[in-house]
């Protein structure tokens, strides 16, 4: 079937709007950080009850606005800037999803057949995770930090990496692309979110330790707006709890597909090798978490190494190493 160029153009326009909306949302999140003071003022009523009976919590508490600015913490964002930021993020996400849908309809196939489409999809997933985590775990403070890399990646995607709509090479024409690549996209989105949280955890943890030791901390200004490191740590762990099984499934589905297409389920093709390495490093992270002495900072570093492997597989392997995976699909 021929490519529907009208729809393909609509998709491009929608993705362009998405970037603008995300960029605006990013600015609003930043303003929220800069101007919304109330969160620091209130000493988290919710947390007082928790420490009940114990001595007052010693570490300086900073809780996201929603928790701090109201007696009953709310699921939904509070404050003008945060509301605007979250609203823009949601509208942006809506456009993002529509852009991907339009692209798929234009091409009559799942729209993840090349690097451009893949990047558009994983950023969409990352924002989806952001929105879900914001509502479920009140993690509105993540907005700025997730949107910065997303806007950057989408900017590159629309310019340098852009690939016009087209059909798939025979090797990719299989229903397994819908299963395997979709799983990889979901897992990657979760891992991206997890890596951002982990980075924040390391920053907050370092700042907290420096302050405790009476040393100056350059990041104190940012960290004041974040929850305690332990909460960040848990959020990052959660993203792996979701992401790791999905990744495992994705790698397995890829193996089954490789068996259909090339006659072996595992052949140590560079892409396979790196998804294996990524998997092993995340398994290391899970083991590190289970080992008392490796929790916290050390586990966080392993987490980031795992993410580095994921990114290398996405970018490095596509650009510098040739293999059977015709995925690279760069113009």
């Amino acid at each position: 079937m021929p490519i529907n160029t009208g729809l393909a153009d609509t998709s491009n326009a929608l993705l362009f709007s998405t970037v603008i909306l995300y960029a605006l949302a990013m600015l609003c999140y930043a303003c929220d950080f800069a101007f919304a003071k109330e969160r620091v003022v209130a000493e988290a009523p919710a947390l007082v009850a928790v420490g009940a009976g114990g001595p007052p919590v010693q570490v300086p508490i900073s809780v996201p606005a929603d928790a701090a600015s109201r007696a009953t913490p709310s699921r939904w964002p509070t404050g003008v800037w945060l509301r605007a930021a979250f609203g823009l993020t949601c509208i942006g996400l809506f456009c993002h999803v529509l852009a991907i849908l339009a692209r798929g309809l234009a091409e009559h196939r799942v729209p993840w057949g090349n690097m451009y489409e893949f990047l558009a999809a994983i950023t969409c997933m990352a924002v989806l995770v952001l929105v879900a985590a914001s509502v479920k775990y009140r993690a509105y403070y993540m907005g700025l930090f997730v949107l910065v890399p997303v806007v950057f990646a989408l900017g590159l995607d629309l310019t340098v990496i852009y690939t016009p709509a087209g059909s798939l090479v025979p090797a990719l024409q299989s229903y397994w692309i819908a299963i395997h690549v979709t799983a990889m996209i979901i897992a990657s989105g979760l891992f991206i979110f997890g890596a951002v949280v982990t980075t924040l955890y390391l920053v907050a943890d370092r700042s907290q330790r420096r302050i405790a030791a009476g040393q100056p901390s350059w990041s104190a200004g940012i960290v004041d707006h974040l929850p305690k490191p332990a909460i960040l740590d848990r959020l990052s762990y959660r993203s792996i709890l979701f992401g790791f099984p999905v990744w495992t499934f994705g790698v397995m589905a890829g193996a089954i597909w490789a068996d259909h297409a090339w006659g072996r389920y595992w052949g140590w093709d560079p892409k396979e090798t790196w998804s294996f390495i990524t998997w092993v490093v995340y398994a290391m992270f899970l083991h590190a978490r289970a080992t008392a002495g490796w929790r916290g900072r050390r586990a966080a570093w392993i987490h980031l190494i795992g993410f580095g492997c994921l990114m290398f597989n996405l970018i490095g392997v596509n650009l510098w190493i040739t293999g059977l995976h015709s995925y690279a699909g760069m113009p």
Partner: peptide, 11 residues
């Protein structure tokens, strides 16, 4: 005080 155990963030 184990603020982490306060669990589902600010419930």
């Amino acid at each position: 005080a184990a603020d982490v155990s306060s669990g589902d963030e600010f419930v």
